[in-house]
């Protein structure tokens, strides 16, 4: 009992932290989302549910759909590129494993914004890549640039959980697959992939959530038609002076992401039960 109480004491700092810096601001956000603005655009509390009606206007739904599309493409690319990298490090990394993982993480010591600016220098019409190719290809201000920027930005969030899953996997399982006359592809499909599904799923969630709400990539690398929901929200706060509408958009987006999160957690829990059984 007293030990329990002692353990509960450990929750106090974190609990207070979350209460003050997460729950309270979230409450304020919710309150503002039902508010309005005064004559000059300063936010006022109130009861104006029409902010939410506006969110479901078709042009905003289109922006949301576009964001989800970009985020899904980002997840797919991260998986396609990140899985082989994680596989190589986990299986063939040997004593270089930690160094290689450190190299994957290293770029993340540099701010995402700065790294995105580096893309402009690299992919600009007169940038490094066009210089090497001796060409004048327009990479920037296209959907591909935005998806590419997102993929680059969140790649590590895919590699790390997949690597962890691969690293935990007993190499004997792969050997058993080969002993049973499985070719490399069959072994991968029937043994390795199922064992790393949880890692892949975790990577999917970790990449999808920030990518769908991102506003840096679309603003710096996109053109007029690559507007994402993060840009829409940012604009309400920093340009349009319409905090209530921005807050309503945020609440709707958070709810939407929460549904995904719950689905993921339930699937992860089910899997854990199956493994235990």
């Amino acid at each position: 009992m007293s030990e329990n109480r002692f353990a509960a004491g450990f929750l106090v700092p974190g609990g207070l932290w979350l209460l003050l810096l997460f729950v309270v601001p979230l409450g304020i956000l919710l309150a503002i989302s039902f508010g309005t603005t005064d004559d000059l655009g300063n936010a006022l509390y109130g009861w104006y549910p029409e902010n939410y009606e506006r969110v479901f206007d078709s042009i905003y739904i289109e922006v949301l759909a576009r964001s989800v599309g970009y985020a899904l493409a980002t997840v797919a690319l991260c998986a396609l590129v990140g899985y082989p990298v994680a596989y190589y490090i986990a299986v063939f990394g040997g004593r270089w494993k930690n160094v290689l993982i450190a190299l994957v993480v290293l770029p993340f010591f540099v701010n995402y914004l700065v790294r995105t600016y580096a893309w402009i220098a690299m992919l600009g019409d007169e940038g490094l890549v066009n210089g090497i190719l001796g060409d004048d290809i327009q990479f920037l201000n296209t959907p591909w640039a935005v998806i590419g920027g997102l993929t680059y930005g969140y790649m590590a969030f895919m590699i790390l959980p997949v690597y962890a899953a691969l690293d935990r996997m007993d190499p004997a399982l792969r050997e058993a697959g080969k002993d049973l006359y499985g070719g490399p592809w069959q072994t991968f499909r029937n043994v390795t992939l199922p064992h790393t599904r949880q890692g892949l799923l975790a990577g999917t969630v970790l990449v999808f959530l920030p990518a769908v709400g991102d506003f840096v990539a679309a603003q710096l690398l996109g053109g007029p038609d690559e507007y994402m929901v993060g840009n829409l929200i940012q604009q309400q706060f920093l340009a349009a002076d319409n905090w209530p509408f921005g807050a309503a958009l945020t609440v709707v987006m958070m709810t939407f992401l929460l549904i995904w999160m719950v689905l993921y957690l339930r699937s992860a829990a089910r899997e854990a039960r199956e493994v235990a059984a």
Partner: peptide, 14 residues
């Protein structure tokens, strides 16, 4: 002010 905000937001979003 609301009309300008709306015009701009819809221009960017559409």
């Amino acid at each position: 002010r609301v009309a300008w905000d709306k015009a701009w937001t819809e221009f960017k979003a559409s």
